[in-house]
Design a protein around this nucleic acid. Sequence first.
DNA 1: CATATAAAGGACAGTTTTGTCCGAAATTAT
DNA 2: ATAATTTCGGACAAAACTGTCCTTTATATG
Lengths: 143, 143
Amino acid sequence: MFSKACKYAVKATIYIAVQSGQNTRTSLKDISAKIDSPEAFTAKVLQVLVKNQVIESLKGPLGGFFISNEAAKLITLSHVVYLIDGTETFNSCGLGLKECSECRPCPMHHKFQRIRSELKEMIEKTTIYELVLKVGEGESFLM
Amino acid sequence: MFSKACKYAVKATIYIAVQSGQNTRTSLKDISAKIDSPEAFTAKVLQVLVKNQVIESLKGPLGGFFISNEAAKLITLSHVVYLIDGTETFNSCGLGLKECSECRPCPMHHKFQRIRSELKEMIEKTTIYELVLKVGEGESFLM
DNA sequence: CATATAAAGGACAGTTTTGTCCGAAATTAT
DNA sequence: ATAATTTCGGACAAAACTGTCCTTTATATG
């Protein structure tokens, strides 16, 4: 469904936001330990998020990654997913037809489209902050 | 969502079933032309379907691939999808947690699980025959 | 039996995804 | 300034996925 890179990105973003709530920057090392991901690979993914201003970073001692509560309330799952995996999974034909629409659908179109719209709506409406709260309250886990 | 191999497999199975309705075997060449897929790669995918008795094949002139209407009524999208892509997409955690359940969920669990169950149910309940009818009636297309 | 046809199967190549390593650049503290 | 720390960025490597080519095997027909 989502690529590994994307799963790492989502979990990392959530974890960074949890830590940022305590106003502390989070190091790559800490992140990859807490979300159980390969450190160097996670670094690459986070660089994309930083470049696209989903999260912030600072080099040096006391450096690390950061995302404010305000930002976490504005950023949704879809922001991260679309950045890392692109939008094809959510917009192109489920069976790979070059053109697939109501007018000229693939045989799976109607059933598939309905479900995928729900998935799309879910990631577009779910904010990182919502997920942070669950982790913060110990209701949910990142590894 | 689905791999290319899986998309080819589904489209090929449907096309073979459409043709089998006229009681004619379908050649690989014909299949890959009609579903717009690379011939040799499609061959590999079809071999898996044959080995697992989703479709039948016969070598030689007048040879080709075949699936009876009766079989097409029993075989669902999930048969093909699980064979080619495996079940991980439909059973494992959306964020890649090794263990993820109601008791110990990832932050996306509840929202994700609901939608994925619908997707799972859809592919498990949709028969190939249903899709064949749509293509047969010119309502749906394979390329 | 000889020949033609079509799937089966093995080997291999290209591409994408995933993952690692290491030096460069920036920041903090001494 | 110097040293220590941490992200950034480039190069590279491994694995998975996609795709091709060619030989072998099975079947039908003359």
